[in-house]
Design a protein around this nucleic acid. Structure first.
Lengths: 341, 341
DNA sequence: CGGGGGATTGTTACCGGTCACAGTGACCGG
DNA sequence: CCGGTCACTGTGACCGGTAACAATCCCCCG
């Protein structure tokens, strides 16, 4: 295979020194237009492309940032990755991804280390299993932004406003007249599960409604089957609630399928609010009222923060992106007369 | 920031030459165990990590492959990316991704070129908008594997057996007794749309059923709304069919929502078969009979082929991965007598 | 006791860029 | 006519590794 042409090949062809070629490439002013043109022609003729590797050697820069994600095939994180990639490219950087899933034994830090060895200039970690701290690993001077992670010193966190989302969802149910509102949380290792649950509690508390622990059920995973099973437990244990706030749309859909199999109708018997606003949410039966999150923007914001940090040396403050309740048909006023109403 | 230690720092500390350090790092045998130990201690003490950049300079290798994808947030391609990433890492490579979407003006070749400049050693392109040819671009000696792409000389293609999937789906409907079977295809720019449609035709032909063009409708996109609109056109134009084979689960779900809004029931009035077996497919109402594709494995196979090509210099043959029909409740025999209302 | 040969280690060049500094020639003023 | 300045270009070192080859040491044999 014909070796890639180097800067010296171009120099020879143009009859100048390699340094002059370098100057032309980097747009230095101190080159006569005649020489510049000659060099450019030579570059074109040889279809020369500067080697980023060689460049990186002196500049010690790779123009790449890394994304370590729990599960790139999860809709939320796929969107995040897409957003991060777009922002990175917009600013002349490459995004290198690593998906951790299925390697449960290996924690994220191993991948972070791998990326650091690869000399990425910044790192994004999405929903780390373990709490991330800055000093950790040889993360030494590589700026790190975490998505959906616990706050920690030295780590910038980008997230959606899970607490606010939980509050909005439950506020909406309360406004429709519901009082006995159940919830299915996500895995409690995830900060977002806590935050949404907090929002749920806050909302009920503010409305003067007692928060009954028996109405809080946990889904051990993000799967539809987990949602279905959680709903089954809820119905067996504490029937009589009129609404459900689910951690995610998938869990909501799983829960609805359990309701259907028991002959309960949504929203006539039980109203349901989901979370995520995945594409199918608008087309389920009934269309799902849910909380929409700006997933792309989370990725963009994370990448943007990392890139700022690379440029300026200081990591900015984290960001909490707003969410929005999307009202569809899965919520109605409680039909069954309640003891209080 | 304290500069990263170099091989020469380690050498000095261990009291040897940098070359000896290099030998230790690369596991050459010709180093006395005493020296080896001394060097390793120095490496450890300085927490020295070899620079892949400098390595890449001499070896001209980056140990990375690139993935250019139409839309990384699409479920299929997210899974493909996850599979490719796993296979790449398993073999000591990194996966660099670029998502093309939202930059409709720029075709894939621009991104491929970008990746080549970055000196990736191999390339995977997923569902290219434009036909890809090997000679194109300075793809010169970089092995290229395409996913869901048209066959072309010099390009290895990995795909799922779309034709077989279409045939299996329609065969199943025929076995249930259906004769008037409609189909909604995907965008006709995608080879998979053609292939699945071919499978549909082959199956009908083999059963001696006339293929009516009025029963073939096209969805202009991959969205649920496209499926819904296509179903509306189909019902307006050629009512009376008893079954639908949809290009994807999302399109199927969109189509079902249109049926529901017209008071038609699935599968009592119309049976539906989807494609993809996305997670929600098992939890829709009714649960969707669909064609399951080994998405991860497509990614793994593509990465594997690229990596083989890097090692051996020759690109192997493409692969067509088998699909599997998953039978759920969205298909019934036609004209099931309505036992009530 | 000198030399061959293997084991071990050091020296130097090189990968393909960038950086610091040195040169060259034209033009200008004194 | 000569020195100085400016615009432009070239030279050599260096980034942090690897490759090729040379050098050294030690052992053993003739």
């Amino acid at each position: 295979m014909a070796r890639q042409p180097t800067i010296r090949d171009v120099a020879e062809r143009a009859g100048v020194s390699h340094q002059t070629v370098s100057r032309v490439i980097n747009g230095h002013e101190l080159v006569s237009s005649a020489t510049r043109e000659r060099v450019q022609r030579a570059i074109h003729e040889l279809s020369y492309v500067p080697s980023p590797i060689a460049r990186g050697l002196t500049s010690n820069r790779t123009h790449s940032i890394g994304l370590v994600s729990t599960d790139i095939s999860d809709h939320f994180f796929a969107q995040v990755a897409a957003g991060a990639e777009i922002e990175a490219r917009r600013r002349g950087y490459y995004l290198v991804i690593a998906s951790v899933e299925e390697h449960a034994e290996a924690d994220e830090t191993a991948y972070l280390r791998l990326m650091v060895e690869r000399r990425v200039e910044g790192l994004i970690v999405a929903r780390p299993r373990l709490p991330i701290t800055a000093g950790q690993v040889p993360l030494q001077r590589v700026p790190l932004v975490a998505i959906a992670a616990r706050e920690a010193p030295g780590v910038t966190v980008v997230d959606v406003d899970n607490r606010g989302g939980g509050r909005e969802a439950v506020d909406f149910l309360l406004r429709q007249g519901h009082r006995r509102i159940a919830t299915i949380t996500g895995p409690m290792e995830w900060p977002s599960s806590h935050a949404r649950l907090e929002g749920y509690r806050e909302s009920l508390y503010a409305a003067g409604v007692t928060v009954s622990p028996s109405l809080v059920e946990q889904a051990p995973g993000w799967d539809l089957a987990d949602g279905r099973a959680a709903m089954a437990r809820l119905l067996d244990r504490a029937p009589g609630f009129t609404a459900l706030f689910a951690y995610s749309d998938l869990i909501a859909i799983g829960a609805i399928s359990e309701l259907r199999s028991r002959g309960l109708r949504v929203p006539r018997d039980i109203s349901v609010v989901g979370y995520d606003d995945i594409p199918v949410a608008a087309y389920t039966d009934p269309p799902l009222t849910t909380v929409s999150q700006p997933m792309r923007e989370v990725g963009e914001a994370a990448a943007s923060l990392v890139l700022d940090a690379i440029g300026e040396g200081t990591t900015g403050l984290g960001r909490l992106l707003p969410v929005r309740l999307v009202v569809r048909a899965s919520v109605a006023a409680p039909g069954t007369p309640d003891s209080g109403g």
